[in-house]
Computed example of a mutant assay.
Amino acid sequence: MPLDESNDIHVGLTGPVRSGKTNLFVDFAKCVELNFHGFQQLHNIEIETDRANRRLLRSYYRNLPDATESVTDIRFNLNISLPEANGTEPGAPLEEKQFTIHVRDAPGEAAFPEEDLTGRTNPHASKLKELDEWFSKAKGIVLVISALNAGTDAGFEALIEKVEDFFERAGKPEFQNLERVAIAISMFDLLLLRFGNRSRDIATEPEAVLAILHAHLKPAFDIIKDFRPFPSQERDIDLRFIATSSYGFHPQLGCANIDTKAETLDPGNSRFPVPLTPDNVRYPYMTADPFIFAALGLDSPFLFTRDEILSGIMRDKTSFTTPQNLSGNMTS
């Protein structure tokens, strides 16, 4: 898939309240650092973050995250090594490329305001214009839904209805640059708790991940079939689904990095489980992937098409190679 020629790329980030949006892009850099993403090792991805990201990291790794209260902009300088044009053979010369990816995070209430039956003004209404202006520049959008909501008809339907309203409200001018939408299914680790120490191995096999998502999303299949980012317009938008986890999987134990004995944990209704590791250590899984795909269009076997999600059958994988990090040991 060809990369965008511009080196300065905007990515939109949106989703309902407490779906895990901020966790995803706070953990973007650490996911790249740990090499626990789905892109080919050939890309040699390196990343440098701005001060806003580093402040968020210090805050989020010190305490369990709260809901986002303000608009936050984060910049990532992304360096990757790719084969030169027409260099498809093994050992082909590599070309260094650098991109600056701008992401804006905002309270879920801003993009998806809840109805207020009391008639009070939505305190986040002032941020709607900011979001519209931001999305006018967006090449891709990351839409986040928690695995807990994604596995129910009502949960996914409510999200999709709000997303379609969001796109329709903004209209064509605001999204004239949009090419890609990544639906990031957060808290994927909660779906693997029953697999114990096999969880990490399962999470590194694209076919296994697809099988779990296919089974889990079945109640929402009718909604997924009908979802179009631009229902009333003919737009060729590349729509992908990807499983993500901010806490990830313990590198030595292999289980989900969640304390299953914590009093607050309810796997059926837990939005912020407690990490298994002390000091809130995370091993983010695939959290960089939706942003890199949304910005650059790079593909990976873990970025599933709508047809793959609905059928449970993977497309031809001959164009992909298993990243070294997914076949070896991950280190903290």
Rank of each mutant, 00 (worst) to 15 (best):
E46F: 08
R104K: 14
R282E: 11
I237V: 10
L131R: 14
W134T: 06
I45G: 01
L148A: 14
I101A: 05
E174Y: 13
R120P: 13
I258T: 05
S199L: 13
V32R: 03
D165W: 03
L303G: 00
K225P: 06
M286H: 10
A150C: 06
H43N: 11
G268N: 11
E179F: 02
K21A: 00
E48D: 08
I80G: 03
A147W: 06
N197A: 05
V144T: 10
Q324V: 13
S311Y: 00
A52D: 09
V144Q: 07
T260L: 15
D307V: 00
H43M: 12
I292M: 01
R200L: 14
T331Y: 15
H10Q: 07
R235V: 11
N197G: 08
P16Q: 15
S81N: 08
F156C: 04
G151P: 14
V274M: 11
A295Y: 01
R198W: 15
T88I: 04
F76T: 02
P93S: 12
D236M: 06
R120T: 10
F135W: 03
F76G: 00
K172S: 12
G151K: 06
R58Y: 10
E114A: 15
E133G: 11
I309E: 00
A262T: 03
A182N: 02
S136F: 08
S332R: 12
